[in-house]
Structure formats: C-alpha cells, structure tokens
Design a protein around this nucleic acid. Sequence first.
RNA 1: GGCUCUAUCGUCUAUCGGUUAGGACACAUCCUUCUCAAGGAUGGAAGCUGGGUUCGAUUCCCAGUAGAGUCACCA
Length: 442
Amino acid sequence: MNSQVVTRFAPSPTGNLHSGSYRTAIFAYLYARKNKGTFVLRIEDTDKERSKKEYEDNILDSLAWLGLDHDVFVRQTENATRHTEVLEKMIADGHAYISKEAAKDGSGIIKEIVRFKNPNSDVTFHDEIKGDVTMNTADLGDFVIAKNIHEPLFHLAVVVDDFDEGVTHVIRGEDHVSNTPRQILIQRAIGAPTPVYAHLPLVLGTDKQKLSKRKGALAMTEYRDLGYLPQALLNMVTMVGWNPGTEQELFTKEQLIEAFDLHQVQKSPAVFNPEKLDWFNREYIKQLSHDEQKNYIKKYLPETITVTESQLDVLVPVITERMNCFSDIVTMASAGELNYYMSAPEVDLAKLSWKGEGNDLAKQHITEAITLLASLSSHEWNAESIKAAVWAYAETVGRGNVLWPIRFALSGRDKSPDPFTLAAILGKEETLARLTHVCTKI
RNA sequence: GGCUCUAUCGUCUAUCGGUUAGGACACAUCCUUCUCAAGGAUGGAAGCUGGGUUCGAUUCCCAGUAGAGUCACCA
C-alpha cells in the first residue's frame, strides 16, 4: 500500500512569493523529490477579488528562478465544474445545505450560501511534525463552504482538489493547523482519504512576528533584483526550521533532496536572519567562475563607471570580495569608492604620510617608487611585478612608510585595495602621473 | 478572550537521561605584506521559572510564565 508520494504547493495569487511561502514550497518540493514522487503546483485563485495575474506570474517566476520545478500545474478555478458537482452531491447526501442569508457586505442582498452540516465531533489527526492534535469542531458551527453553488470557498476546494490530484502529503504552514479538522470533516463527508499532514513552524521576521509584506518581508524577486543568488536563498531558507543533524551548512539542491527529512523539521518558529543570508550569498558568489562574477558585476555597475574589459578583469575579485550581494556595487559607486579607478582623486596632503612621518619623507618615498616603477615595462605591469619592484625599498625604510603614501596618492582614500592592485588597474602611465602630480603639490 | 502549538548562546541549531552543553551567523581580540576586504587563530555568549519522576535531568511528566498561530461569504 506504499503508494506514490504526491505533494503540492498551493499559494493563492494574492501577493508576491516571500521567504515564508517559499520555505513551504521548498519542503513540499524536497519531500516529493526525495521520494521520487510528484510535485503539484496549484494556484488557489478562488477568491476572484483578491487574486491577480501579476502575483501568479511573480510566484511562477520566483519558483522557476529558484529551481523548484513542478510536475503538475493547475489553477483551482479550472476545477469549478467538479466543485459544483461535489457541492450538489453533499447537499443531496445531507452533508451540506443551502442557506439564504443577507450578504455580509451590508448590501441587503439575500444570497444562497452553502453551509457544511457540522457533526460537532472531536477530530484528532496525526501531524508528522507536531504529533497528534485534537480539536473540537463544535464551536465552528455549520461553517460556510461556498459563496454559492458555483463559487466554492477554500476548505471545500482544497479538500476536493487534494483528493482529485491524489495528494498524499499535505505540507503547509502552521497557520493551517486550525483549518485541518474542518477539512478532515469534509473529507469524511465526501469519502476522501485523509492525507498525511505536516505543518511547518512559521518563519518570523527580526521582530519575531510572522513574516508579511507589510512588515518588510522581501519578495524572492526582490532578493533576485538585489543580486542574491538562487542557490544562496535555497540553502538559507531551507535551513530555517530544518537541519540535517550534522554540522554541514552548505548544500546544493541535490544534497538537500538527499538529506531532507520531515522528522528533523523544527517545532518552534524561527527568525529569518538576513546576516546569515549574506554569508550564504558570499559563499556562493565565491563559487562562481570569474566570468560569471564579471557578468553579474557588469549588470550592476552604474553607467557612470567606465572601465575597460582588462581593468574589469582585475577589478572583479577586488569588488566581489567586498560585497554581500551584487547590488552592493551600486552602493559602493554612490559612496565614491569606485571613482578613483576612473579619474585622479583629490588627495588630502595632510593624510599623505604614514603615521605623521611628514610629507618630506613621503615625497622622498614616492619619488623613489616612481623611479623603481618607471623601469618596469608596460607588458610586465601587473600587481605581482609592481609589488616586486617596490618591495625591497619598502622593506628597508618601512613598509607602511612607503606603501601608505603610494596607496593614498593613487586612491585619495583611507580605505582601498592595496597599492599594487590599484596600480595594476590604473596602468603604468596613469599610476606614474598620479604619483608625480602628488609630488609636485608638496 | 476561546482553541492549538512552541520554549538551548543575540540569531539558526546539535544533544536519542550521564557531554568541559557542540557547530554556524554576528560580535571582540590577535596574526597574516600599509588601510580596507578576504583568510587564519583565539575568546565572550545559552538550557524561562517552579514542582515532580530518577542514582542522575537541557532531555520525561505537570503547572506557571512567555511567545506564536488561528478564530471570514480570505486563503
């Protein structure tokens, strides 16, 4: 009786996909893949007022970008005929009835809503994560299952669709626990089997509240636009509320599928830590090839920053090493941290010498460096040989005494990459020009 | 408020009753070619409280407290 596993991710297209719903999708996905089962993506669009195509597109785009491929795609409204059929059968069987009531919007219109005939019993179900949960359904009353015979509501539609799609495992957020008993009641009424339930603890924001758009939860597409890598998001979000029981932190999607186990899912809600995401992202940026990093950088580099291809090649590791996500380039650029690669900086002569040694000495060191560097031919102008050229001198008179003035003369900044890298990016001519210019100003 | 669930470093977590309570992020200090970054090393940092059960509880049970979720003609 070990039938094929079918899981589903059933978002309503009433908002963008954020990390909370994304985590639900991941777990349902991983469980299906791990068990060689089927992963159904079902868009729950029965609420015509709130459902929007743009949100459905956002969910689809996000899932595709993040690599969660589905085997079956369905929109809930496509099953309307079947829902009506079930509703009619339930009424005929005495499990539901039509009730003429005034609309709740105060318009005074009398509507024919469908109510479920509640047997008012205790319902106990087993949850793979929470264990056994028992709830009394009496206080639910005869709850509404359809706005009218043609417009089913959530509880009815979910039960019918899960049944029809052969869903064996319902893996969803903890906010659905209290919905489960009434859905089980409907299952019993229509003769549908009860699937295995697994209710995931919620993902909370830094304020320890449930993630929501209002509280600043970012959509997955926003993370994408900020220059986060999908593999970082997958890894990070999976580790919120789940762990493999080992000390491994970095997982590919395949490793996640292999290692995933519903029983290692945490019971308590977890706070989403953006700093850890940054760490994951940095790890995955490091794993990118030079060309991949370069392409990302090109995408985010403001047009005001103009550098040649070969300059960019040297710049790629310098920049990637200093960022959490690729949009940090924009921040760096607007902070002026990229300007000195393109044009000579204003150099504050008061800060030119190392540890207040004085500009006379600084000038002496720079002059010596100019002589040493001038002897390098253009084709051996790279960070290694530049370093080799000045190193011996710097060793004899003090590294900082020589290196700081050179770096400062080239960048005009307290903080920057090392002088050798800087000189390599700037080229021989520009480097010597900047050094000479500073000397003349002293 | 009713109902349901939860409770280990600031955060994510490990621990199948006996551990110097481990790891990761973040943080601090030091080292590594001047600054920054990266890298390395070291360090500080936790069992909510009170009762039980037990030779022994972070671990099992109960209560309290705290937090979360949910109480729609939304999903």
